[in-house]
């Protein structure tokens, strides 16, 4: 099993673990942590898609002369995408935590089965 498939399998496993945790837990904080796990899995898969065996990071320094860059670096686009995704993921996590705090303040519980207003 090569490094890429290993990283990708790890990413997929993290997505599955995160979704399982998010669907099966009652505690809102645990759900949030499970979501961030799944989020990390997605990042791992995306970075692994951009990886190419035998190549190096997309930085043009002594190891990568400018005129040979095309043959030496890995795909920089997924890395830029994942950078964006990490930042947005952090924003989403912060929002979820803020709402969790408000929910706890209003009901004094973090058990999601106690919040039934939107249930049908």
């Amino acid at each position: 099993m090569s490094l890429v498939t290993l990283a990708m399998a790890g990413g997929f496993a993290l997505i599955l673990i995160g979704l399982y945790g998010a669907l099966n837990n009652r505690n809102i904080l645990r759900i949030i942590i499970a979501f961030t796990l799944a989020n990390t899995g997605v990042h791992l898969v995306l970075v692994a898609v951009g990886y190419m065996p035998g190549r190096t990071a997309p930085i043009l320094d002594a190891a990568v002369p400018v005129d040979q860059a095309n043959a030496l670096i890995i795909d920089p686009v997924p890395q830029a995408l994942v950078l964006t995704a990490i930042v947005i993921g952090l924003g989403v996590t912060a929002l979820m935590l803020a709402y969790a705090l408000r929910l706890f303040a209003s009901r004094h519980t973090l058990d999601i089965s106690k919040f039934t207003e939107l249930k049908w």
């Binding site: 997309p58 930085i59 043009l60 320094d61 860059a69 670096i73 920089p76 686009v77 890395q79 830029a80 950078l83 964006t84």
Partner: peptide
């Protein structure tokens, strides 16, 4: 720019 990812972003 040396860092291509930075150039893109």
């Amino acid at each position: 720019a040396q860092n291509i990812v930075t150039g893109i972003i």
